[in-house]
Design a protein around this nucleic acid. Structure first.
Lengths: 129, 129, 129, 129
DNA sequence: GTGGTCTAGACCACC
DNA sequence: GTGGTCTAGACCACT
């Protein structure tokens, strides 16, 4: 359920954030669900507690999770999708980069579109809710 | 033509690589074209020759450019689109990440698809060769 | 244990790579072993950290070692001997060159074969695993 | 007959030297044969005359070819195989390196030995003359 | 502590 | 002229 690759170039704390977001969007983690504590999580994925803490703090800053003192950390009930112009530009730029990489890897436009549709389905049609 | 942002979080050498790939894919740089020498480029974008060199070497490793000893660096004549399974998985993973980020940024599926189509048109020559 | 010749024509970073491969193949370095940090190694062999870093990165690219962010560099657990057709051709070409050089140096075929056998014994564990 | 790769990492002048030695050892070039002039050769392989000249000079220094003023350059009649201790050590070191590379490429000892025998045959049994 | 990136400047071999 | 290698030292993010 929660796989982290310490060999990856992407920082561990970032991998945690991404995984968390994915689990939420897929509906595996639902609003109100309790998350493992920092200590539990760090021993689960064999990482430094500081690293897990950093990820949790960032997720809280983004509003995906909430920490209730003495009770634990929970998935937020309402996730507000904020239209951050800067963030949107970043995503667009990343998409452009993927298109370029895909070209050099010999992947067709149609293939990418197919993947996109598959992912949307996998994400419980998050985009159409 | 060649803009680099030294303040960006993405390393300069990576920015060069991306820019180069984009110029090749758009047809601004054609097979056989001579690239600016390491020294020229470094003074153009105000960066260290080593940084430019690093970018050039990576581009050569990927097969996009070739260096002829003592003569300079040139855009490769044959860019073989090799179907590297590992690379494809990586791209797919990146696409998945973008879809997730897009959702949280409140970007619609249709919007992303529109962007993709626009980019595809922009790179039209290359993609439909 | 780790001798480098700064006067040699072969670059220092390449000497490090070769030495490392030899130590791995001889079993002196075992899978999972921690390598000296870039700084340690650079002071050990009296070279610049950048030079050591370059060697480590190449070894990682080849899959012999792995770097765990913030923790250090380690000998890979699974070194997959991938049958890269291009690499094999390169080795064959190098062997051809050696045979030619050996002829002009007055070395007999039998002598070369003897050397090969000796080396094979030296690397025995690795070769017959 | 005479192929040079300007993209290769090995210098062009060295490629010429190696090719020449190979042609001699194979018996394609026989003692007394006339070589193309520097100018001819340079236009043949599309290289700078200086580069060809450098190769010829080195080959002459090694005793493989001889220049007769006003007549041209010829393959030497007697090639003395000199037993240079330093050279021999170098070759042995190169052989060791190949054995290591071969291991990581998944090539067996037997395969290498077979290649060696094939090459010896190809070289008109130079080693057994 | 670790490796990743970068600058400033140097020397070398090759063409 | 070109790129390849190297040093000395710096800053940064990650663990």
């Amino acid at each position: 359920m929660f796989e982290i690759d310490p060999r990856s170039a992407t920082p561990i704390y970032e991998q945690i954030i991404k995984k968390m977001k994915e689990l939420c969007i897929k509906g595996v983690l639902k609003p109100g669900d309790k998350l493992p504590s920092v200590r539990e999580m760090s021993s689960m994925i064999i990482a430094n507690p500081n690293t897990v803490s950093k990820a949790y703090k960032e997720l809280e800053r983004e509003g995906l999770i909430e920490t209730l003192r003495g009770r634990g950390t929970f998935v937020s009930k309402m996730v507000q999708k904020k239209l951050d112009e800067e963030k949107i530009e970043m995503i667009k730029e990343e998409l452009r980069q993927i298109m370029i990489d895909a070209f050099y890897a010999g992947i067709s436009f149609e293939q990418i579109y197919q993947w996109m549709k598959d992912m949307n389905n996998e994400f419980a049609n998050a985009f159409h809710k």
